[in-house]
Amino acid sequence: PWAVNLIDRDRIIADARAARASGANVVVLSVHWGTEWQTAPDEQQKELAQALTAARSADGLPDIDLVIGTHNHVPQPYEKINGTWVVFGMGDQVASFVPADKLRGNQSSVPRFTFAPAAGHPGRWEVVKAEYLTQYSDMGPPFRVVCASCAASDTSLPAAKRSEYALIDQQVTEAVMSRGAGGQGLEHATR
């Protein structure tokens, strides 16, 4: 039987450790969590992120190397917790919300993390670059998914569209950076 809304911290950690024992150099957790339409992480997200990023192997290395969240429909913050990046929520990557109160559901972020071998820890990798792009499902016509970070400065687009994408880029950036990720090394990519 399927379990609905079941997030079992101990099972997640056990699964991460099993992946590592099976030879995984990098363990990325994609977790379906959070309160729909809420930009700020809820208490469950914050508590779980704290516990998961604190989990360590016998040699003191993280059990989980990156946490990517989904579910809540709107972009949420990125934050480095216990030395591990957490994307609380990307927002919907492809959406078609039309009612005015749901349009922000067409906004999202695209995380981009670069891993490299960890110095001094053979077989382990670590994040050496943390970036994000902003994205928008433009209802058009035609419907298209646009890199707002990229399109905001695209001179081949009409000025009104560039302004629209620049505003979306700003709104998504505010959400992504709202818990201090910029000071933790997160970069806003435009390509």
Rank of each mutant, 00 (worst) to 15 (best):
W2D: 10
V4H: 10
V4L: 13
N5D: 15
L6M: 03
D8N: 11
R9C: 00
R9E: 02
D10I: 00
I13M: 12
I13Y: 10
D15M: 12
A18C: 01
A19E: 12
G23Y: 08
G23E: 09
G23W: 11
A24V: 09
V26P: 00
V26D: 00
V26Y: 02
V27D: 01
V27A: 01
V27S: 00
V28Q: 00
S30I: 08
E36Q: 15
Q38I: 00
P41M: 15
E47F: 14
A51K: 12
L52I: 08
L52W: 11
L52Y: 01
T53F: 02
A54M: 07
A54V: 10
R56N: 15
R56Q: 14
D59C: 13
G60K: 13
L61I: 12
L61S: 15
D63V: 14
G69F: 12
T70E: 05
N72S: 15
H73L: 13
P77C: 15
T84D: 04
T84S: 14
W85T: 06
F88Q: 11
D92S: 01
D92E: 07
S96R: 10
V98A: 11
P99M: 07
P99S: 06
P99F: 10
A100H: 08
A100N: 10
K102V: 06
R104V: 08
R104P: 11
R104C: 08
G105L: 02
N106G: 01
S108F: 05
V110G: 14
V110D: 14
P111C: 02
T114D: 13
A116I: 04
A119R: 09
A119N: 06
G120M: 04
H121Y: 06
W125E: 00
E126M: 02
E126L: 02
E126I: 03
V127R: 02
A130L: 05
A130C: 01
Y132C: 03
L133Q: 13
M139T: 05
M139S: 02
G140S: 06
P141D: 00
R144G: 05
R144M: 05
V146D: 08
V146G: 11
A148S: 14
A148W: 07
S149Q: 04
C150H: 06
A152E: 11
S153K: 04
S156C: 04
S156G: 07
S156I: 04
K161I: 03
K161F: 05
E164F: 03
E164N: 07
Y165R: 05
Y165N: 04
A166K: 06
A166R: 06
I168R: 11
D169C: 00
Q170S: 08
Q171D: 11
S178A: 13
A181F: 11
A181N: 07
G182V: 09
E187G: 11
T190C: 14
R191C: 12
